[in-house]
Amino acid sequence: MYFDSLSEFINMGGQGLYVWSSFALSLLLMAFNILLPWLKLKATRKQLARQLRREVNQQGEQA
C-alpha cells in the first residue's frame, strides 16, 4: 500500500475528490454499458418468445 492510512487513501493529498469522482463516473458509465444491453437481450428474448407462442397458437386454432 502506498498510503499510510485509510483516511489518507481517501483524501489522496487533497485531490481525492477529483480522483474518486473520475473513477466513480467511469465505472458507473461502464456498468451501464453492460447492464442496459443485458436487460435488452433478456427483454428481446422474452418478447420474441411471446410473439412466437402467439403465432403457434394462432396456427393451431386455424388448423
Binding site: 500500500m1 502506498y2 498510503f3 485531490q15 481525492g16 477529483y18 480522483v19
Partner: peptide, 14 residues
C-alpha cells in the same frame, strides 16, 4: 493504480 502505484512527483495523486 489507486492504492499501490506511487504518486507522480509533479501532479500528485490526481
Amino acid at each position: 493504480g489507486l492504492a499501490y502505484a506511487p504518486m507522480d512527483y509533479q501532479q500528485g495523486n490526481s
